[in-house]
Structure formats: C-alpha cells, structure tokens
Design a protein around this nucleic acid. Structure first.
Lengths: 118, 118
DNA sequence: CCGAATCCTAATCGATACTG
DNA sequence: CAGTATCGATTAGGATTCGG
C-alpha cells in the first residue's frame, strides 16, 4: 500500500520534475496553443535541446500535444491535451502549497536566507 | 504571475524530488515516529548516506523533526512536523493522479511497455 | 523554423570503509 | 546505533554545431 502509493507518486513526479517542465506547463496552461519559437521567447534561458527534450517527454506522457504543419518554413504547435488538463488540480495544489511554504521558510530563516542547504 | 506560480511550484518540488523523499515521507506519515534503523529496514535499498542526506533536507524544510536521545548506544527518532502534516493533501493529490496516470499509460502503450522513454 | 547530433560539465547517486 | 568520509559511476543539464 505504501509501496503502491510511492509508485504512483513517483510516476506523477516523473512528469513534473525537470528544470523546465513546470514552466512549460504553466505557459501552455495559460496561453493555450503555442509555437516552438513562442515557447522559446517565453523562456529565454532554455536551449532548443532542452525545450525539445522536455516537450517530447510531456508528449510521451500524453500531457502535451504536438501538431506539425507540413509547410515551409516548418511550423509546430504545442498544446495541453485533454488528458493533460486533468492534472490542473495537482499543479494548483503544488503551486499553492509551494507558495505558503516559501513564506514559511522566510519565517523560520528570515528574509535574508540563501534558500540553499549549506 | 506565471513566473510566481513557477517559483512556488519549484519550491514545492524541491521537497518531493529526490529518489527517496516520497518513500521516506510515506513511511513517516504511515508509521508516525521511526528510528533511523527502522527507516533503513523499511527501505532496504537505501544507503545510510542517502538516508541521512534526504532526512537532513526534509529537516531543513521543517517537514521532518529529528529527536536525538543522549544515550549509548545512540538513538535518533524522526517524525513529521506539525507543519509537515499540512502537505498531506499535496501528497494525496500526487499519489491519486499518479495512480490514474499509470493506468492511462497502460491504456496507451499497453501493459507490456517498458515505462521508459526510448 | 524546428529540430538532431555531439561534446562537455556539474550534480546526483551509490559502494565501501571508518568513527564516536 | 547513527552517522561521516571518500571515491567512482551515473545522469541531468547546457553550449555549440549541423541539417531538412
């Protein structure tokens, strides 16, 4: 049971984990459909390699849909799948709790803390 | 706003992420107070180094409490803090969605899939 | 414009041995 | 019993270059 819970949780975390996954998801959740280049502009720090890799994983998990237009120059659009929309509550829960957690850490360690563990 | 959500989410993920964090949390949530050796027995694969490291991080985040008994041989007990209990809903949400997600992947790729992306 | 391929660094994870 | 220290293996992340 505990073991089962853990498999489930890790399966869920697989999707959220990665330096860019949450950002990408927030972008797509907020803006609906976005082109590859739009995503890149929205996240100036990300490299094409990373963006592609993370999108592929999200696509594999059926969270993100990839629509290819057969034209020149190439055009590819990404959007959250219907199934992906179901994880909105999880994202909200994480963002909510994370928000209160940031405040909690500030109370404990003060505003001047580095945020890093030694 | 999106940016703020993202900081919050990543702050939350910081806590859950790590190969052993979820397991440790499930153990402590289910069993209440546990000694170091009990945790080890519950997770035969984990090394002492990893167990210590993950517990320290959880302690830093005020999710886990560490109680040291000054006796010989040493005795240290770990438990979820009051604040830590507040993240129970998040854990539940993750486990729930992860569970349904596993089933969803099975539907898409079939039971025989490896679970790995290429 | 949207990637794939290559190479490299940094962080994470793990096996083993040692200590108060 | 409950750790720390050290080292090697593995993986995630990034810079750059090339191609359809």
């Amino acid at each position: 049971m505990t073991d089962e819970c853990n498999r489930s949780t890790e399966s869920a975390l697989e999707i959220l984990v990665g330096k860019w996954k949450p950002v990408i998801l927030f972008q797509l959740f907020n803006n609906g459909t976005m082109r590859f280049s739009e995503l890149q502009r929205a996240m100036p720090q990300i490299t094409k390699k990373m963006l592609t890799a993370q999108l592929r994983e999200l696509e594999y998990h059926d969270i993100v849909h990839r629509k290819i237009y057969m034209e020149v120059p190439p055009k590819v659009e990404y959007s959250i799948t219907e199934y992906g929309l179901q994880m909105a509550p999880v994202m909200m829960a994480l963002a909510d709790w994370g928000d209160s957690h940031i405040k909690h850490l500030d109370e404990i360690y003060g505003e001047e803390r580095t945020g890093k563990l030694n």
